[in-house]
């Protein structure tokens, strides 16, 4: 493989990834614009932010083991009580980091 060919494929790979990602973002917005904002559809869309975010992390929480679970719970409780994002994250991360020192 020549250097030029590999350079082109690198740029093509990044370009395609960027294009796909942008089209998904923009396509979602356009799609929703043509759909109703009431009734069942509204309830679906209103529930979506929470359920996507949870789906993103649920498997990672499970595979993080016992202390990962403790750290997650600590972060969640702290965020719920204090509404302080940074404090809550540091709290959870500190617990997991400490647990790995032993």
């Amino acid at each position: 493989m020549t250097a030029i060919a590999s350079n082109a494929s690198v740029l093509l790979t990044i370009g395609l990834a960027a294009m796909v990602t942008y089209l998904l973002r923009f396509g979602g917005l356009m799609l929703a614009g043509s759909l109703p904002r009431s009734g069942r559809w509204k309830r679906f869309m209103d529930a979506l932010p929470g359920t996507i975010l949870l789906s993103l992390i649920a498997p990672a929480i499970v595979s993080a083991g016992l202390w990962g679970g403790v750290g997650t719970l600590a972060t969640a409780l702290c965020a719920y009580k204090t509404k302080n994002l940074l404090l809550s994250m540091l709290f959870g991360v500190a617990i997991v980091a400490l647990s790995r020192q032993f």
Partner: peptide, 28 residues
């Protein structure tokens, strides 16, 4: 673990109360 922690904290800001319990359970 920072990844999990940041999204857990963000998630809690999206909690709307009891009606979210079932959807969240099913999602997880």
């Amino acid at each position: 673990f920072v990844f999990v922690a940041v999204f857990t904290a963000l998630l809690m800001t999206l909690w709307r109360g009891k009606p979210d319990l079932a959807p969240w359970l099913v999602a997880a």
